[in-house]
């Protein structure tokens, strides 16, 4: 009997430890659901896909997830392979998101192709209430254009028209 009590006690302690551990992991790495905007294959629309993103550095991690591409096989990636997001910084309601050169160099071009890329980034970031406008920079600099149609001097707001 005495032995059995002892085993129970150990078991209870183990369960408590496990719960505390899990709770801590969850505390350190809380996940939130974010919308990621991906393209329809005809390059006409963007469709949001929900994904759990780490809360710590939420904006940056959300864009990192966007770069990974869609889980839904009926949607298309919106940013070329090899693109790296360097930073997302917030000044008032304006978020500036900085990518490496690959965003321009590896871009597939076309007006639709360019719109899809820009507004998948812009719509994804403006889902957060703290962000109203998004400016895209490349390697820390403002470029004239991404693919030869849209000026990157301007900042962009959420685009409702392009969302299906």
């Amino acid at each position: 009997m005495k032995n059995r009590k002892y085993v129970y006690l150990l078991l209870i302690i183990a369960v408590i430890l496990l719960l505390v551990g899990l709770y801590q992991i969850r505390q350190n790495n809380q996940l939130v659901e974010s919308k990621l905007y991906f393209a329809t294959p005809d390059a006409m629309y963007l469709v949001p896909e929900n994904r759990l993103v780490e809360k710590d550095q939420l904006y940056l991690n959300t864009i990192k997830e966007l770069l990974v591409g869609p889980e839904n096989s009926e949607l298309r990636k919106t940013v070329p392979d090899g693109v790296v997001v360097n930073s997302v910084s917030l000044d008032g309601k304006l978020a500036t998101v900085d990518f490496n050169e690959a965003l321009i160099e590896k871009h597939w071009g076309g007006s639709s192709g360019e719109l899809i890329t820009i507004f998948s980034i812009v719509n994804t970031l403006t889902q957060f209430s703290e962000i109203e406008e998004v400016k895209i920079t490349i390697a820390g600099e403002t470029r004239e254009t991404l693919a030869g149609h849209m000026g990157l001097d301007d900042s962009f707001e959420f685009n409702q028209e392009i969302v299906k």
Binding site: A39, P41, D42, A43, R76, K77, P80, W108, G109, G110, S111, S112, G113, I116, H149
Partner: peptide, 17 residues
Amino acid sequence: IHANSFNNNISSGTETY
């Protein structure tokens, strides 16, 4: 005057902005 493009080979058609 432009020609359009996307990252797949099925997007097609004409549009004017």
